[in-house]
Computed example of a mutant assay.
Amino acid sequence: MSILKRFLVLLVRSMPTVFVVVTLGFFLMKLAPGDIADYIAASSGAATVESTNALRDSFGLNLPVLEQLFAYYRTLAHFSLGTSMRFDMPVTELIASRLPATLLLVATSIVMALAIGIVAGTVMALNAGRTKDRILSGLTLVFYSIPSFWVGLMLIIVFSVQLGWFPTGGSQTIGSRASGFHFVIERARYLFLPALSLALYYVAIYARLTRSTVIEMRRQDYVRTAVAKGLNHWQVTLRHVLRNALIPVTTMAGIHIAGILGGAVVIETVFSWPGMGRLTYEAINARDYVLLLGILLVSALVVIAANILVDLLHRFLDPRIEARS
């Protein structure tokens, strides 16, 4: 089975999950107090009960809850996410303008967390019980204990305010005409601190998991056989130990994608990163359930697609998974 075909099959199988996510999200939002009409009335400062009820009628908020849900299903059936009540724009356009920045931040954070965590965990495992292991274990415990937003604020103070190495926020210089390699470097300078702030918490998890898995794998019979055949230390570690140790680490990374997306909302606010975080905050503040459901649906699809990619990565790391499926 080709990779693309397998990806499409898994994506189709996940559609019931998306249906459940949208339905539960809709009812949870309806349980929250207030609606978009209350927000508009509070913003105008001169609204009356009659005008507020008129707004609810125009938005269909006075309809029974099930009718509102079925109306949203009909909108989705036409491959549309509806129109935002707050911005009076198609939800698809709003999300499309913010999603690439969030995906860039999340993908960079995952790559950084995995790279740093796997390297640190491997060093800890190869030096178990020694000074390097104790120092790295202490550092990972510190990263695990500190909230991401506080780490972000400290990074801004140290590397932006004091040292001036990185910008304090935003995604690019206003009016910049950089292109090519210079454009990539400029974007990387704006991206580094928010991505690192989001990644450090997960670095601790992946480092500890890699450490325990590598220690376990080094005790396996096939590792002893590889050593007996005369392979050097690094060949055994990279080709036999670390490759098998990556499976539980990447599995955990797939589970954490939803949490990283949620953490991106806070980090984007701290660093003024123009992603979906600010859009989500504005939608919650305005009680714009159409926009919120659109963000929830797209986020669920991103998480599902990422977990499918993790599944395909496992098949590459261990061909036996393909044989068993």
Score class of each variant (00 low, 15 high):
Phe183Cys: 00
Ala120Cys: 12
Ser97Arg: 13
Phe192Gln: 00
Ala125Tyr: 09
Ser176Cys: 07
Phe192Tyr: 07
Leu66Lys: 06
Ala113Glu: 04
Leu139Thr: 13
Asp88Thr: 12
Tyr72Ile: 11
Ser137Cys: 04
Leu66Ser: 07
Val158Tyr: 10
Leu114Tyr: 12
Pro64Ile: 05
Leu193Asn: 03
Phe159Trp: 08
Met89Phe: 06
Val119Gln: 02
Val161Ser: 12
Arg134Tyr: 07
Leu141Ala: 15
Leu191Ser: 07
Tyr73Pro: 02
Phe159Asn: 05
Ser160Arg: 12
Lys132Asp: 00
Ile135Thr: 13
Val65Phe: 01
Pro147Gly: 10
Leu66Phe: 15
Pro64Leu: 04
Ser179Gln: 14
Met89Cys: 01
Met85Arg: 14
Met112Thr: 14
Thr173Pro: 00
Val158Gly: 02
Val91Asn: 05
Gln162Ala: 12
Tyr73Trp: 14
Gly138Ile: 04
Ile135Pro: 10
Leu69Pro: 02
Trp150Asp: 03
Gly121Asp: 04
Leu153Val: 15
Ser137Thr: 14
Met89Lys: 15
Leu66Ile: 15
Thr168Tyr: 02
Val158Ala: 14
Leu69Lys: 05
Ala77Phe: 12
Thr83Ala: 02
Tyr144Gln: 14
His78Gln: 14
Leu153Pro: 00
Leu69Cys: 00
Met124Tyr: 03
Ser171Glu: 06
Phe192Ser: 01
Val158Ile: 15
Ile116Thr: 12
Ala188Thr: 15
Arg134His: 12
Arg177His: 11
Leu198Asp: 06
Met89Pro: 00
Glu186Lys: 12
Leu126Arg: 13
Leu103Met: 14
Pro167Asn: 09
Thr131Ala: 14
Ile185Asp: 00
Pro194Arg: 01
Phe166Lys: 13
